[in-house]
Design a protein around this nucleic acid. Structure first.
Lengths: 126, 126
DNA sequence: TTGAATCATTCAAAATATCGAATAAGGTAG
DNA sequence: CTACCTTATTCGATATTTTGAATGATTCAA
């Protein structure tokens, strides 16, 4: 039935990006790899849910998982995915990126009040 | 409930791109606007289905529809969506774009045999 | 008006995606 | 070994998407 080559592949990648939590995960992976625990506490969601979304990103080939002792570090496989995410935001109707606001700042949930600390190995800070 | 700002917006755009037929429609809109009839015959799918996918793209703000007599011309609202589509393809695992092959060529279905002609107003050819 | 052509929308069924809860799997420490 | 910690997976319920079929809506021509 007359398939569509790269259209299928492109759609699969788009589908992997088609959820706010997965976009947020990629935002958190922008500067460096992150432990699952870190993503879980930063996004304030059940661990299973984060793990499920990570599986989606992994199966799409967008991230890699590296076991490190008891923990697992997720990293973006190809940094060009960040260009993609940025362009998705720019194309959004209401989104006009004002010159002074960093995109990264705006999209991170920044947990409010007490509860913003992460206890993952890399986050020894308070 | 702690929303996610631009992550939602980005995900909505990604969702609009998350289907092979919609990617193909955008490919056909790459050079110029197209009549629905043109898209329908080129992609070899039921008219209602194409119209549904066009509605998805329209609601995401990615395309515009302009009535022209009995027909309707769809155009891409912001050409930057093509960058997005190209990058979606590049990030696909198996997709290594060889230098000599135009991406556009590969992704169009090119209906085989007899049945490749379109009868839309703009396609007076053969 | 009637009919034809083009496109949009509605409907119900099937397929997918998402979620929380529970459980499993893997590693570490005692 | 047991107990614990971190992450992954399975399960069932719910929600969303996709589809063809049928129907509407609009325009034009006769």
């Amino acid at each position: 039935m007359e398939h569509s080559w790269q259209a299928d592949a492109a759609a699969i990648i788009a589908q992997a990006l088609a959820h706010p939590v997965r976009i947020q995960i990629l935002e958190l992976l922008r500067r460096e790899g992150a432990y699952v625990m870190h993503l879980t506490t930063m996004l304030g969601r059940p661990q299973a849910n984060i793990s499920q979304h990570l599986a989606t990103l992994r199966e799409a080939g967008l991230v890699t998982d590296e076991r490190e002792g008891m923990t697992v570090i997720y990293r973006v496989r190809d940094p060009r995915v960040f260009d993609l995410v940025d362009r998705l935001k720019v194309l959004s109707p209401g989104t006009r990126v004002s010159r002074e606001s960093r995109i990264e700042e705006m999209t991170l949930p920044r947990r409010s009040g007490r509860g913003r600390g992460c206890h993952c190995p890399r986050c020894a800070n308070r």
